[in-house]
Design a protein around this nucleic acid. Structure first.
Length: 292
DNA sequence: ACCCGACGGCGTCAGTCGCA
DNA sequence: TGCGACTGACGCCGTCGGGT
């Protein structure tokens, strides 16, 4: 998370960015996905008795203790000697069964001043008044989870890409429903539906799997509309089309961002519960020893 | 069956920001 | 400085669930 989230769900950009979190292991963690400045960590842990692997997701927070949650009990494989490097001490690994595992804390090379001292006052003011885009927030959150925007292509690029059966592809087709057959004997037929086909300039061809690509609609003469006012209209149509696509993408990212925040809430609630339980057990232990 | 409010998705406009 | 990307705001439309 690039910033902390306030009670309204908006990001406080002035909240310190998380220092790079280093996750390492000795023997157990077989794979890790970690992006600089991220605080979501994906680990793959081998299951104890078979070759299946256990997915782990965690939210590592700056300046806070962290909880690593697993979908399955990973206690057997988190034996002595496993080291997970975190930037904050006293983090725990929590399993559905409530098992808590203290983490061995090792100093990382990341320093806190790497994210706090190099920002000019102007930058800070900018951050104060402007919320980072969802793309930036989510990229900071989870690395490559957000797909990069589709790049507009020239026809030649599209042609070369079509040869490798990729979409988007720009072409000129008559308006109406079309079908694409692929595979031998046309066994696999994809129906394409077109929207905006009644308007001049462009139509969106929607692929069966939700993908879309832009198709200029042929004018009555058979040529793509061009010239003077028509050119203006075509430009406007292009702009509207792009903006339409951008709005869709923006909404998608917004939803993803909200989902991400909800996940974080869940993790924090579990973390809170785990810490409360730990505190409770420690209190009991203390009282027990005191009475003896 | 009909009405109505809530909700979500979409298209568009307008404004801002970053970059070449 | 122009342009593209991004996003909030607004209005419209379809769907759904509940009430009558």
């Amino acid at each position: 998370m690039d910033g902390m989230v306030d009670e309204n769900g908006t990001v406080d950009p002035l909240a310190p960015s998380p220092p790079p979190v280093a996750i390492s292991s000795v023997g157990v963690v077989t794979q890790q996905q970690l992006v600089a400045s991220t605080n979501i960590v994906h680990l793959t842990l081998p299951a104890s008795n078979n070759h299946a692997q256990t997915q782990v997701q965690s939210v590592i927070q700056p300046n806070q203790q962290s909880v690593i949650q697993t979908a399955a009990n990973i206690q057997p494989v988190l034996g002595k000697g496993n080291v997970i490097l975190v930037s904050k001490p006293n983090s725990v690994i929590q399993t559905p069964q409530g098992s808590l595992h203290a983490l061995q804390v090792v100093e990382t090379t990341a320093s806190d001043d790497s994210y706090s001292d190099d920002e000019s006052p102007k930058k800070r003011r900018d951050l104060l008044t402007r919320r980072p885009s969802y793309r930036k927030i989510l990229n900071d959150l989870g690395g490559g989870e957000i797909a990069e925007p589709k790049v507009e292509q020239t026809s030649s690029e599209a042609d070369s890409e079509l040869s490798s059966h990729s979409i988007p592809y720009h072409t000129v087709i008559p308006a109406g429903a079309i079908q694409i057959s692929s595979g031998e004997g046309g066994q696999s037929i994809h129906t394409l539906s077109m929207t905006n086909s009644g308007t001049a300039g462009a139509a969106i061809v929607q692929y069966a799997q939700g993908q879309e690509f832009f198709v200029p609609v042929m004018a009555q003469s058979g040529n793509i509309t061009s010239g003077g006012g028509e050119d203006q209209a075509r430009k406007r149509e292009m702009r509207l089309l792009k903006n339409r696509e951008a709005a869709r993408e923006c909404r998608r990212k917004k939803k993803e961002y909200i989902k991400c925040l909800e996940n974080r809430v869940a993790v924090l609630e579990n973390q809170n519960k785990a810490l409360i339980d730990e505190l409770k057990s420690l209190k009991e232990l203390y009282c027990k020893q005191k009475t003896e």
